[in-house]
């Protein structure tokens, strides 16, 4: 089964989308008589310190991460395509300006930037909005790396014989761009998309571990992992408290599946 990673990912996404039906407890209901209990029939993965259903939180949290990480990756790849192509096309001045800014963006202390952005945001921001902003910011900050690759790719294409041939055939520049350049950097963009996907998932997890991601009570992988940090019992008795490790296991699984499918893509192209 060559497509196994993709199939498994699709199944995961499907399960996550069914979260409201699979986990009717919801992610924020506090069952205060069942604090930090182990797995039971009602709570498949037990409950957390506030009596919230871990299974529901995992499903809803994964749903957010699995849906929004691709969105963030798409944003950053789109930006990278526009900026990178612009850099490759434009005159020396604009190009060096773009290179300069991408250098700056790459060396930015983005964590600090995120802190500032979150600090500047109004306080009464909804959890739903906060997660969108989190991923949007990730996407906005993620353009620099792919943009350089796109720029290099476009330059290579510009030097190619078929672009020259197109010129010699009198094909208009805009047509050259949309018909001869864009379709040929598409594989590059797709590759960048797949590469940045796990990066964004992990970034969100890191941010969450620092308390900078989605706001309570909405779960995300980041928030769930952050909880784990205070769960020393999970580390002391990994087998007895396996349910606590579920978010990590799922995160590792998804990231590895993404890597696998990406490798396959690379191998086939």
């Amino acid at each position: 089964m060559k497509r196994l990673p993709e199939i498994l990912l699709a199944v995961l996404v499907l399960v996550m989308l069914c979260a409201p039906w699979l986990a009717p407890n919801g992610y924020e209901k506090q069952s205060r008589d069942f604090i930090a209990v182990g797995p039971t029939k009602d709570f498949l993965l037990g409950t957390d310190a506030l009596g919230r259903d871990r299974f529901a939180r995992l499903l809803f949290g994964s749903r957010l991460s699995l849906l929004l990480a691709p969105a963030a990756a798409a944003v950053s790849v789109f930006l990278a395509a526009v900026i990178g192509a612009l850099a490759a096309f434009s005159g020396k001045r604009l190009e060096s300006a773009i290179i300069f800014f991408s250098d700056v963006a790459l060396s930015l202390p983005w964590l600090f930037l995120l802190l500032t952005i979150r600090g500047a945001m109004p306080l009464d921001i909804r959890p739903e909005v906060s997660i969108v902003i989190t991923f949007l910011v990730l996407g906005l900050l993620g353009w620099a790396g792919p943009a350089r690759i796109v720029r290099a790719g476009v330059r290579l294409i510009l030097k190619s014989d078929y672009i020259f041939q197109a010129k010699a055939m009198g094909i208009a520049p805009s047509r050259t761009f949309f018909r001869y350049i864009l379709p040929n950097i598409k594989p590059l963009l797709i590759a960048q998309f797949w590469i940045s996907l796990p990066v964004f998932i992990l970034s969100e997890a890191n941010l969450g571990a620092l308390g900078l991601s989605v706001s309570e009570p909405m779960p995300s992988w980041g928030n769930l992992l952050k909880e784990l940090e205070s769960q020393t019992s999970a580390l002391e008795h990994p087998l007895a408290n396996w349910q606590l490790l579920a978010p990590i296991v799922l995160l590792v699984a998804v990231v590895s599946l993404l890597q696998l499918s990406q490798q396959r893509l690379k191998g086939s192209s």
Partner: peptide, 20 residues
Amino acid sequence: RGNQISLVLQSPLASLNPSM
């Protein structure tokens, strides 16, 4: 170009747009 004066290059495969 391509209308009154046209050009044929040395490497035919590289001169065609690979994605069209």
